[in-house]
Simulated scan of single mutants.
Amino acid sequence: MQLRRQPLPAPRPGDPYPAAPLLALLLLLALQGAAAAPAGSGEPEDSGWRQDAELPHGLLSQAARAALHFFNFRTSSPSALRVLAEVQEGRAWINQKKEYKVDLVFTTELYNPEKGKERLGKCSARVFFRNEKPRPATNITCTRLIEKKARQEEDYLLYKYMKQLKNLLDVVSIPDSHGHIDPSLRPIWDLAFLGSSYVMWEKTTQFLHYYMAQLSSVNQWKTSEDAIDFDYTVLLHEFSTQEMIPCHIHLVWYPGKPLKVKYHCQELHTPEEASGTEEGSAVAPTELSNL
């Protein structure tokens, strides 16, 4: 005699769920919750980091300025130079070596805004400070501040102006003693600021940041190529120490091509010189996107 398998009775309202289906349901809900979690929430992927609830004073602004120096250098465009407007949000992680990873969102404005026109853009960045070591690794994404075509046209006009100069430039002290920059010298100042952006980014640490205070001398070299070739000296204001650091910079620029920079700076508080080129490498990936 063959036994027939009897179907299981349908559960009635109020009956508990069987154990196995209940466990399967809980597992499914857990997986769905993990998939729905935002990619950037919580700690960075690598271990050893913890979120710092009490950010050091000025750390977010420090990270934003470092990211913008790097951004300006990599855009290679005097007409698209940006400066920090406002940090909107940010958070940081710290590890046992007292190194910081900073995620932030901030607004920017044109270095030379058109009169009567407010030109703002927004950037998001991650900056990695290796304690007191310079050259913070940077990953930055920005919205366009001006259209690419307009930027290229402005850069080319500046390039033509510089190429049409009959005499080699021999400029001393921009701005003048009254803080004024002659309009005819503004393109030279902007090009010097562009090259100095690399130097300022490379020298930035968690505790020190820089700004170009004065262009003390400029010489334009003739070359066999079409590029603008500059050799100039600037004074960089080193915040925190309030020192003025003289840096000798050699810049090669052509519209639409990567900027080439070599430099050496005389540190006033040490007998040694710091020097570098744009080919140096950072510990963590350094990237730029969405130009």
Rank of each mutant, 00 (worst) to 15 (best):
P16Q: 00
Y17S: 10
Y17I: 13
L22R: 08
L23A: 15
A24Q: 07
A24V: 04
L25M: 14
L27Y: 06
A34M: 07
A35C: 13
P38E: 07
P38I: 05
G42F: 07
E43D: 15
P44D: 04
D46A: 12
D46S: 11
S47H: 13
Q51F: 02
A53Y: 12
A53V: 13
G58F: 01
L60Q: 01
A67R: 00
L68C: 00
F70W: 08
F70Q: 06
F73I: 03
S76F: 03
R82K: 14
A85N: 14
R91P: 03
N95K: 01
N95M: 05
L104A: 00
V105W: 04
Y111K: 10
K115S: 12
K115E: 14
K115M: 10
R119L: 12
K122I: 13
V127A: 00
N131P: 03
R135Y: 04
R135S: 11
N139D: 12
L145R: 01
K149E: 15
E154H: 07
Y156D: 10
L158N: 05
Y159C: 04
M162G: 05
L165E: 13
K166S: 14
N167I: 10
N167E: 15
V171E: 08
S173N: 15
S173P: 01
S173W: 14
G179E: 02
H180K: 12
H180V: 13
I181W: 02
D182F: 12
I188Q: 06
I188A: 05
L194N: 03
L194Q: 05
G195V: 05
S196E: 07
S197V: 02
Y198W: 08
V199C: 14
M200C: 10
T205H: 00
H209N: 11
M212N: 08
N219D: 09
Q220Y: 08
W221E: 15
K222M: 11
T223R: 09
S224P: 08
A227C: 06
L236N: 03
Q242C: 10
H250F: 09
V252S: 05
P255E: 02
P255R: 04
K257T: 10
K260N: 11
Q266P: 02
E267I: 09
E267V: 09
L268W: 04
L268H: 07
H269L: 15
P271W: 04
E273W: 12
A274E: 12
A274Y: 09
S275Y: 11
S281Q: 15
S281K: 14
S281I: 12
S281F: 03
A284L: 13
N290L: 09
